[in-house]
Amino acid sequence: MANNEKEILLKVRGAKTYFAIKKGLMKRTVGYVKAVDDISLDVYRGETLGLVGESGCGKTTLGKSILQLVPVTEGSMEYKFEDGFKDLRKLPRKELDNARQKIQIVFQDPYSSLNPAFTIFGSLEDPLIKFGMKDKQERIKKIGDLLESVNLPRDYMTRYPNEFSGGQRQRIGIARALSVGPELIICDEAVSALDVSIQAQVLRLLNQLKEEYKLTYIFITHDLSVVEYLADRIAVMYLGRIVELTTSEELFANTLHPYTKALLSAIPVADVAQKKHRIPLQGDVPSPANPPSGCTFHPRCPECQERCKNERPVLEEYVIDGVSHFVSCHKVKEMMEAKGAVKKESVSE
């Protein structure tokens, strides 16, 4: 797993997306919901990066921030174009449109992401026209090919969304994302709304398309068993921050952050032989408008110390047996220093 050999496709540095809370007649800003709070990460070309966390932890907002679908408050998101890295935040409108040809998104709910008044052809032709395919015959051919690549018959393009099942709609959503030839696809809970037997179809399709089109995925989900199956690396988020980021194997074999441990132990596993010890978490996820001081996880953390209450831990990289492992936790840091694990420079400068 020599990460330095891999090509970085997207560099996110210190990204913050805050939503203002407005109150009163004058709509004064009384506070901020810190949906994404200082996130730095790299996405390598050809990998699947899983983004996991509970609802409200900011995983969807991070996905939307990368696409500039929500106004980003601070930080940079540099994407590697043919002519080098460019910050998506600073691109002029026109260039941003072109950038979106490289980065596409598949939404969670296949029932609301397709316009019911348009045929599948109508829904899928818009991005093609936008990116310069003016000839209708050409578009028909292209859309037919796209439908075939997601295992749907060509002639389905004349049908309307209500004629399709959830799994089929999700595949149409994937076909739409593929239509402009993207390099990076952000899948926002792409399989969460589907029945289990259909989920497997879509998951396999995603893996197959990744090989075929040399895609990179950012896979946002709350379901760790799905992400374990798909992802090369996994980032665990809690209240707008990344608490742990490492390869999929390492995360499950050597879980370090107390939150990840609790999250893993809370997941019901479809295997009667695996009876495990559960780490109960007290209480609910705090509101991102008013996060706790210090480490945001400390009120629920079973290993909370005095220091955690006041001092916010930084996401730091440790190298364990040659695998890089980012964790933000005081306790883990102490443990790692005692063990003498090589510590690299922290990514958030």
């Binding site: 497997a200 374990e228 199956y229 596993v269 479809a270």
Partner: peptide
């Protein structure tokens, strides 16, 4: 049987073979 084969099981990693149930309900 098909249902059990079609779901990813936590802790089995990337090597597990998911076999979707063909067709739809």
């Amino acid at each position: 049987k098909a249902l059990l084969r079609s779901i990813p099981v936590l802790g089995k990693g990337k090597n597990q073979q998911l076999e979707p149930i063909r067709g739809s309900t």
